[in-house]
Simulated scan of single mutants.
Amino acid sequence: MTFPPNYATDIQRELGAEYEEQKKQLGTVISGISHDFRTPLTASLGYLQMIGKSGELSDKNAEYLGIAMQKNRYLKVLSDEFFELTKIENGGEELNIEKIILGNLLTETVLEQHSWIAERNIRTDFDIDDGIMIQADVHCLTRILNNLMSNAQKYTSDSFGVKLKQDGDCVVLCVSNTIAGSTSLDVDRVFEPFYRMDARTEGGSGLGLYVVKLLCDRLGWSVKAELNDNVFTATILI
C-alpha cells in the first residue's frame, strides 16, 4: 500500500488540531461548571454571614458556624482559582502588551503585604530599582506578582525579601522567604499543579506557582526556584 506524500505530517496535523479543539471544549465545560459552582457558593456564604449577625447562636453553634464559613470561603477561593486557571490554560484573553514601569507596580504590591508582615513581625529586605521599564500585559503581570506574594505569605517563617535589578538586557525579579525547618519542600516540583510546599499549611490549592509559570511562559519569560539554607527564592528573568 502506497501512502501519498506528507501523509504522516497531515495525520499528525489533524490529530494536533483535534486535540486542541477537544482541549478547548473541555476548558469551556470546566469554566461553565466553575461558574455554576461559584454562584450558589457565594449565596450560601451570604446566608451564613446573616446567621452570624443574628446574635441568636449559642457559643458552640457560633463556633460551628465559624468553621462552616471558613470552609465555604476556602471553596470559593478554589473555584475562583480553577476558573482563572482554565482561562489561562486555554489561551485566555488576548495579551495587551504595553510599557510598564515594573518598580512602581512591584512597590505597590509589596506595600499591600504590610498587614501580615507586621502582624507576624517578619524581617524584610526590599531592594527595588527605580525606572525599570518592561513590555508586558498588566493583568498577567499583576497576577504573577500577587501569586508570588501569596506564596510568601503562606510559607514565610521569619524573613521576606524582594529584589528587582537590571542585568544588562535582562530584568531580574527575585522573591525570597525563609521557610520553617520542618517544612517539606521538593524545589523541583514547586511549579507543578496542585503541589503544596507543606500539606499541613491551611489554605491554597497548590496552583499559585503553577499559574506563575504558565503566565511567564505566555509572556516569554523564564522562572526558576531555588532552596538554600531554608531560604526559598523564586526568580523571574524578563
Results as ranks from 00 to 15, higher is better:
residue 50 M to L: 15
residue 81 E to R: 00
residue 1 M to A: 14
residue 40 P to L: 14
residue 106 L to I: 09
residue 77 V to A: 12
residue 98 E to V: 11
residue 103 G to F: 02
residue 116 W to M: 02
residue 197 M to G: 14
residue 139 H to R: 10
residue 188 D to S: 15
residue 200 R to H: 05
residue 187 V to W: 02
residue 140 C to A: 15
residue 51 I to D: 04
residue 191 F to G: 06
residue 66 G to I: 10
residue 107 T to I: 02
residue 96 N to Q: 11
residue 110 V to Q: 05
residue 32 G to V: 01
residue 136 A to T: 11
residue 92 G to S: 08
residue 224 K to C: 00
residue 225 A to Y: 05
residue 78 L to V: 10
residue 175 V to S: 09
residue 210 Y to W: 14
residue 74 Y to A: 15
residue 199 A to C: 04
residue 93 E to S: 08
residue 4 P to E: 12
residue 162 V to M: 02
residue 154 K to M: 10
residue 195 Y to A: 03
residue 158 D to F: 03
residue 132 I to V: 02
residue 204 G to T: 14
residue 49 Q to I: 10
residue 39 T to C: 01
residue 20 E to F: 07
residue 43 A to K: 07
residue 118 A to F: 10
residue 212 V to R: 13
residue 83 F to Y: 08
residue 85 L to K: 00
residue 133 M to D: 06
residue 14 E to R: 12
residue 143 R to W: 05
residue 191 F to H: 08
residue 154 K to Q: 06
residue 168 G to L: 11
residue 183 T to R: 11
residue 48 L to K: 10
residue 150 S to V: 03
residue 66 G to C: 07
residue 219 L to C: 08
residue 118 A to R: 10
residue 117 I to Y: 03
residue 65 L to P: 06
residue 209 L to H: 09
residue 26 L to Y: 06
residue 11 I to E: 04
residue 212 V to M: 13
residue 104 N to Q: 05
residue 149 M to I: 12
residue 203 G to E: 09
residue 103 G to K: 03
residue 189 R to I: 00
residue 233 T to D: 05
residue 209 L to D: 08
residue 11 I to C: 09
residue 15 L to D: 05
residue 103 G to V: 00
residue 77 V to I: 13
residue 64 Y to Q: 01
residue 42 T to A: 02
residue 66 G to F: 07
residue 188 D to N: 15
residue 128 I to R: 08
residue 155 Y to E: 08
residue 221 W to E: 05
residue 69 M to H: 06
residue 107 T to A: 12
residue 56 E to L: 13
residue 121 N to T: 12
residue 168 G to P: 10
residue 83 F to A: 09
residue 205 S to D: 08
residue 93 E to N: 10
residue 26 L to M: 07
residue 152 A to C: 13
residue 29 V to F: 11
residue 123 R to E: 14
residue 8 A to Y: 08
residue 136 A to C: 11
residue 218 R to S: 15
residue 141 L to H: 09
residue 29 V to M: 10
residue 25 Q to M: 15
residue 200 R to K: 09
residue 227 L to S: 13
residue 7 Y to C: 07
residue 107 T to W: 03
residue 91 G to K: 13
residue 125 D to L: 11
residue 115 S to Y: 07
residue 82 F to C: 04
